[in-house]
């Protein structure tokens, strides 16, 4: 079982709704995130330039570095759903998992002094609902489900996409399960490791 979110960047309009839906649903502190929408570009030669948006959250790595480094087992893979989660009661706040996450998508909860991250909205999916960010996505760009189950929304979205349009964030052996769809007719996918910038704006190398 590989529960994950697939984001169709051909449809994503960078509207921040998934970010807000997530913060409202999970009551996340100001300055912290489980999900954040990045802008990539524009890059290329004016006026033939390209740009896309990249909503990022825990990528549900199959070989999750955060779980490997966690000394207490607070970062763990749920035996029932295979979802990578944090058991805040076990967390000692050593932040190794934050260092180990290749994407920096874990959050420090200042108040409780523990690490948190996207839970794939397990409290909603357990009741058959969609994650908040998926349900409310104005672009109809987010798909949730088990990638090993071909009938899930996420699998169907991937199956419908051209092979060359399916991407993951730069994989350093952690095998992110989250997939992004971006067709070349809109923009050239950039390896996430080649992206740099400040705040929410990211550029590819050399721009």
């Amino acid at each position: 079982m590989r529960n994950a979110i697939v984001v169709d960047l051909d449809r994503c309009s960078g509207c921040f709704s998934c970010e807000i839906a997530c913060k409202m649903e999970n009551g996340i502190a100001l300055g912290s995130y489980y999900n954040k929408v990045m802008t990539v570009g524009p890059f290329g030669d004016f006026p033939h330039i390209q740009q896309y948006f990249l909503p990022v959250h825990c990528q549900q790595c199959e070989n999750a570095p955060c779980v490997h480094v966690c000394p207490t087992g607070a970062s763990y893979r749920d035996p029932d759903t295979n979802v990578v989660l944090v058991d805040k009661a076990k967390c000692i706040g050593c932040k190794y998992c934050m260092m180990a996450c290749p994407y920096g998508v874990r959050s420090w909860n200042k108040e409780e002094r523990v690490v948190e991250k996207c839970t794939l909205c397990g409290h909603l999916t357990a009741q058959g609902d969609l994650p908040a960010c998926v349900h409310n996505c104005p672009g109809g760009a987010r798909f949730y489900g088990d990638l090993d189950d071909p009938t899930s929304d996420a699998s169907k979205a991937l199956a419908a996409a051209e092979k060359s349009a399916v991407h993951t964030l730069t994989d350093v052996g952690n095998k992110p399960a989250t997939h992004y769809i971006l067709s070349e007719r809109y923009a050239q996918w950039q390896e996430s490791k080649d992206l740099a910038g400040s705040g929410r704006y990211m550029q590819k190398d050399g721009e």
Binding site: C15, F16, S17, E19, I20, A21, M24, H135, N136, C137, P138, G139, G140
Partner: peptide, 13 residues
């Protein structure tokens, strides 16, 4: 909308 709601709408609370 097919169930979509934007950042402004979700901020209603």
């Amino acid at each position: 909308t097919h169930g979509g709601l934007c950042a402004k709408g979700l901020s209603g609370i």
